[in-house]
Amino acid sequence: METNIFIQLLGNNWIAYTAIAVLPLGFLLLYALVAILAELKVSAWMQDRLGPMRTGPWGILQPLAEVVKLLQKEDITPDLANKVLYNLAPYMMFTGAYAAVAVIPFSQQFVPSNINLGLFYIFAVSAIATIGVVMGGWASNNKYSLLGAMRSVAQIISYEIPAAMAILATAVLASSLNLNEINTVQDGGIFNWFIFGGPGPWFKVFVLPFTFGLCLIYMIASLAETNRTPFDIPEGESELVAGYHTEYGGMKFAMFFLGEYVNMFIVSAIMATIFFGGWQSPFGSSIMSGPVWGLFWFLAKVGTVVFFQIWLRWTLPRLRVDQLMDLGWKYLLPMSFICFFAIALWKMLI
């Protein structure tokens, strides 16, 4: 079955492909506005403040005001920065983040590219964003930027391994790397999602702790990969001013910012897809399921994970660099190995 509504509607031509490529961009811009507002408001409520209240009713137009502000700012390139790389870096960052959207199944009927390597592809393209970070940090010709970029890349590479183990385990459970197929396997209600061990007989309770643990490991690792608190050491204000984007302002900063929010969306979408059933309805495939409901469930799950990330950001303090590396290599990595072997063994036995 064709899994893309645009190819069904418009035929197999370039108009359909353009629509498929452009539509997520519009959606992500909208999402970024909502996420910025959520970040402002959630942080305010958690600290017993009101947050922005003056732009629009309850301040809901605040993100638009921020965008207008960033658009108006002067476009600065520092004198001693490397001009080509300095100006290229924000776009690299955003390209890397946006490239991952290509394989994310938004709904049964809308998977931009339904390839068989989805999971692997997402990991591969995340490298492009890493290069963007290094490029920006190096080209700024600023010690803080360089240190921030180095920390950021070291962190992303360290935490990519436990995250990859978590993802590999779900690939083992689903016997597929295709994200849409991974969703299809998790049919039949909330207890067939991979966070609860996937579909199976009652004795899947033996594998449940491991899949649940992997979900937590992936959550922690994804926070570190998106450089969010408690892992925002690369941007620690008190030590590094703002990390790799210290020298950036105006629209170039906005591109970095957008890239980070898109990255947040990507990791949340991966998490929703591989652990929470993606577009599957939590009540099984007969109740409230269908292409439009699928989109609704997917966005609801992604929204929940994004909210959780924001929640953690305003709850936990920042880790130290050595604690961060300890957590990644000495705790998360062995734990993810154990979970992976347990799941592989279970898959072999049943």
């Binding site: 390839i115 068989n116 390597l117 692997f120 592809y121 990991f123 591969a124 393209v125 995340s126 490298a127 492009i128 890493t130 290069i131 290094v134 190096w138 360089l146 180095m150 890349v153 590479i157």
Partner: peptide, 25 residues
């Protein structure tokens, strides 16, 4: 050869290139 393509991205860009850039930087 989609698998080779993604592996190319993963190993050469994600691994080797980052290493080269770090070394030079």
């Amino acid at each position: 050869a989609d698998f080779i393509a993604v592996t190319q991205l993963m190993i050469y860009i994600g691994g080797i290139l980052v290493l080269i850039i770090f070394g030079v930087m």
